[in-house]
Design a binder for these strands. Sequence first.
DNA 1: TCACCATATCGGCTACATCCGATATGTAGA
DNA 2: TCTACATATCGGATGTAGCCGATATGGTGA
Lengths: 102, 102
Amino acid sequence: MVTMMDKTEILKALSNPLRVEFLEWMRQPEENFSSQAHPLEMGICAQQFERRCGLSQSTVSGHLATLEKAGLVSTTKVGQWTFYHRNEDAIRDFIETLKTSL
Amino acid sequence: MVTMMDKTEILKALSNPLRVEFLEWMRQPEENFSSQAHPLEMGICAQQFERRCGLSQSTVSGHLATLEKAGLVSTTKVGQWTFYHRNEDAIRDFIETLKTSL
DNA sequence: TCACCATATCGGCTACATCCGATATGTAGA
DNA sequence: TCTACATATCGGATGTAGCCGATATGGTGA
């Protein structure tokens, strides 16, 4: 279930094309990211986004935090790494909400 | 059909909650707007949005222009009025695009 | 403990978004 | 033509977004 506040926050998160790309890249990790120490199924670690988009570490970290605050991705911390993965339920609910309310 | 640029522009347009409300209000004109000189089926004239949200004429005009540039609404000019109506095809295509790409 | 690595956060800069009042444009009717 | 009205556009003030380098935080392994 997506509340009205959630919806606004999600739409703000998606208003930046780079953040949308982040989400899209995560749909097909094998095609968009190089191999990493841990299996891609655990999620994608922050570095991978940095390499892929070429922006600074702090900028990428900020974008990922925005996606997480909006509930579109979740994180798994393993040691010094933070693995990001799509929150498929939230994404589906959001689109469903748009479909019925927009 | 929604291109990638369209998608970005639409998402930017939807990143403002007031603009989202404008679109939602237009789904049920009878419930959200008072009667106007011309029938609501022609579209909603700009004044109605002003009254409903309480912001200034110039601000509302700007928001409506943003929605139109994004292709989410179209306008019909009749005399001194501009009637806004939802572009249902564009809205549907956009949501469908999100569903398959996001 | 110490050096290294991954990530998060901070401070500062620049660009864009949002709001307003004032003004321009264009239509309608006396 | 003159006035009133609806809308669009302009200019300026303020807030937010996005970017960076520098630094803080916290795990890893020698």
